[in-house]
Amino acid sequence: MSQANEAIESDERVKRISPLRKALIRPELGGMCGTVIVFVLFLIFAGDSGMFSPQGVMNWSQVSAQFMIIAVGACLLMIAGEFDLSVGSMIGFASMIMAIFATTFGWPMWLAILVTFAITISLGAMNGLIVVRTGLPSFIVTLAFLFILRGFAIFLPYAFEGKSNIGGIKEISEGDWLASVFGGKIFKGLFQWMGDNELIATFSRGTKAGQPVIEGIPMLIVWALGLIFLGHFILTRTKFGNWIFAAGGDSEAARNSGVPVDRVKILLFMFTAFCATVLATVQVMEFSSADAGRGLLKEFEAIIAVVIGGALLTGGYGSVLGAALGALIFGVVQQGLFFAGVESSLFRVFLGVILLGAVILNTYIRRIITGER
């Protein structure tokens, strides 16, 4: 075995990669560096503001979890070489039809949720079918669906209720077995014990006196972590994950090698719709209402998170863990600006700057991988 290794090492046809080069081509590198920088900055400028107290951590964790849920689907699709710009509108559309089914039609919450998932996943499949059958750029196809779904999200509540916001979800979802999967909390007993032993803060007055300020881990965070694990496992441990990379790297070569490129892309469009509907359902349960403007610009935030996480815009390269780190950066910065007393509108400035930096870094990485100058 050692002789074989020596022969390989001495073979001039074998391209040797230095440890530094290996580190540079890791897709998570940009996300890891960005995460460290962001945490250090806010530890310095907002460390005394409560940002890193249990309540502060829970705040930016929930914001980050929202980005993570949609970033997982967007990441897999972008690695396969496609985009879905309808994600944000899908969130608004899904939340609205779910609320209409439950309130206007009087369906039980579990049925409204399941039917909503069936409709949105079918729309995701339609997106994918149009892209692979017509050969049109997914950017154009999903841009059209962005306007279609947003239009329906605005039209439907006015058509059925005469307003843009539908409430009353809390009463309908009370005790519903499926609603609790999206809107409940876990480890409540543990957090109550921590509060009783003064490990975390508790309310000192009112009807909640003695109860912990943090009641448990919201299902929003549970869903985010679950989807990250699922996406990472599929991408790195399954044959389907290899197909995703192949479809985004060189689709024609992948087809010639027996990879079902069209089926892979259609399934990934369905998965992005699934992730969008998960976030929509969680938000409906959290706010006990649906609003026509929900999900606005989320598609671009998901793409930016994926790019920050190291995915190439050309496809064939990326990481779910990197996308999750990009989403974490979003959540920390969005809440960190508030804790630091900085004008919140500067968050958009940050998005533009970090997107530009991530694209430049990814271009450099692509040149390292392909050997271009």
Results as ranks from 00 to 15, higher is better:
Leu199Tyr: 07
Lys185Glu: 11
Thr134Ile: 06
Trp107Glu: 04
Ser138Trp: 01
Leu156Phe: 13
Leu178Cys: 12
Gly195Phe: 01
Ile172Asn: 12
Arg133Lys: 14
Asn165Trp: 12
Leu114Ser: 12
Arg133Met: 07
Ile121Ser: 07
Val141Ala: 03
Ile166Tyr: 10
Ile130Asn: 05
Phe187Ile: 10
Ile172Asp: 07
Lys170Ile: 13
Gly162Phe: 14
Trp107Leu: 13
Gly151Arg: 14
Gly183Met: 02
Pro157Glu: 11
Ala153Glu: 00
Ser173Lys: 06
Ala144Met: 12
Glu171Ala: 14
Ala144His: 09
Ile121Pro: 08
Ser180Ile: 15
Ala144Arg: 01
Val115Pro: 00
Gly106Glu: 09
Leu146Asn: 10
Ala144Glu: 05
Ile121Tyr: 00
Leu190Gly: 11
Phe160Ile: 06
Val131Cys: 06
Thr116Ile: 01
Ser180Lys: 15
Ile154Ser: 11
Phe160Ala: 08
Ala179Gly: 11
Leu136Glu: 02
Ile169Tyr: 02
Leu156Ser: 04
Thr116Gly: 05
Ile119His: 05
Gly135Pro: 03
Ala153Gln: 04
Ala118Leu: 12
Thr142Ile: 08
Trp107Met: 15
Phe182Ser: 02
Glu174Ala: 15
Phe145Trp: 12
Ile172Val: 15
Val132Leu: 00
Met194Cys: 00
Glu174Ser: 15
Gly168Trp: 05
Gly106Arg: 08
Phe145Asp: 12
Phe191Cys: 11
Lys170Thr: 11
Phe147Leu: 13
Phe152Pro: 02
Phe152Glu: 06
Leu114Met: 14
Thr120Trp: 02
Lys170Val: 09
Gly135Tyr: 12
Thr116Gln: 00
Asp176Tyr: 07
Lys188Tyr: 01
